[in-house]
Amino acid sequence: MLTIQDLHVFHGPIEAVHGISLEVEKGKCISLLGPNGAGKTSTISAITGIARSTGLIRFEGRDLSRESVEARIAAGIAVSPEGRRIFSNLTVLENLTLGAALQKDAVEKAKDTDHWFSLFPILAERRDQSAGTLSGGEQQMLAIARALMARPKILLLDEPSLGLAPKIVRQIFDLIADLKARGMTILLVEQNATQALKLADYAYLMSSGRIVAHGTADDLGKSDKLMAELTGVA
């Protein structure tokens, strides 16, 4: 579904990712693991078109490498970004409405809103509340729900557990497992390798802008390289 070949990502003159390749198959959950500064978020930014990049980004057979951010989103890519980036000056419902900005049919939009509110009951309770007043976990749920409102073909989740209490992290991963069970294609970027590998069908380990290991979750989970990269202990 999503093929990335020889991707180089740049932040100004600095090259953050050095020629990585990866593949995400339809209906699978693929995890991108690695420590801080490994280039995981840069990879997500390149897929969405926010960061400048070279290399091939092919989505459902279509080359998106030179397409605008908006065209990539319209093609069916949605992102729940690192740090959540919910619109704190808007209500929960307004955030979701913006998530479905490309959905022209008001009836369908209302159906989607009801659907995701049923999956995220806490958001339904706070629908008219300013999003900035939500807790960290609720904001993460909102960021995911906002992305899902676009009816994406692939969901990019960037560090969904970042900064959350362990209990909330479990809830978020249960939610991602639920989405996976519903057939959603997911590219999950995480530092929390233990949780991510429980969900992932396949995983890539990044370090210093390169993929240093990849394999099934089982294989990678047993690899010494994973612990070495994530903990810095060889």
Binding site: E70, I73, A74, P81, N89, E94, L98, A101
Partner: peptide, 18 residues
Amino acid sequence: LAVRAASLDFEMVRLTGI
């Protein structure tokens, strides 16, 4: 809504496809 949201995070508004 996009205009209001853009005052806070313009890049994120683009990521909704607008």
